[in-house]
Amino acid sequence: MADALHFAFNPGRLGHREGAPGLVLQELTQFTLASVIACKDQAAQAAAAAQRAFGTSPPMAPATAAGNALTFIWSGPGHWLALGPHATGAVEARLGTAFGTHASVFDQSGSRVLLELRGPRARDVLAKGMSIDLHPRAFRTGDVAVTTASHLAVHLWQVADEPVYRLLVVRTWFDSLWRWLAASAAEYGCEVLAPAPYASHTA
């Protein structure tokens, strides 16, 4: 166990200690998350239903769409993750009502860890385990990649040009992801902030 938590995920500075940290990392907690999968040939109707209920249309390509209370993160054709602040009441019931017979809804609120990454070397750190092109010409604010980081399945999206990224990883893989992130960020210095309740990004 001591080994398993070699890089304990606690607030504080890791790796290179001088100057501003190359990567700033914060876990965001208290969110609701659901998989929304359009029924057969119902993607357009599902999008329209979301527009009515949440004021935004879930994207049909790898991107995010922020509505009131919820952000839709593209996850596959006709498949989105709906992310929002923790709310009382079952997420499946709330979303299920909105989508009706156009989509199936699956609560995933407990399945993932959500991180926010920023800092001047954030791109360089992510490039050590992600094969996608994160250059601003190729990946912009609002873009989503469903891909792997250090062999682990993740959703990554950019929320600001700075850049600021958000990353969802499966909860039981989080320790392995963190070990890779910590090792990869060490040469630039990594600041872990205390966890904060989820809020949609505001620049």
Binding site: H6, G129, S176
Partner: peptide, 16 residues
Amino acid sequence: HHRGMDFRPTRYAPSH
């Protein structure tokens, strides 16, 4: 990075 403990990712059960 993938040597020793990190040779491959490890999955930890919720009760770990």
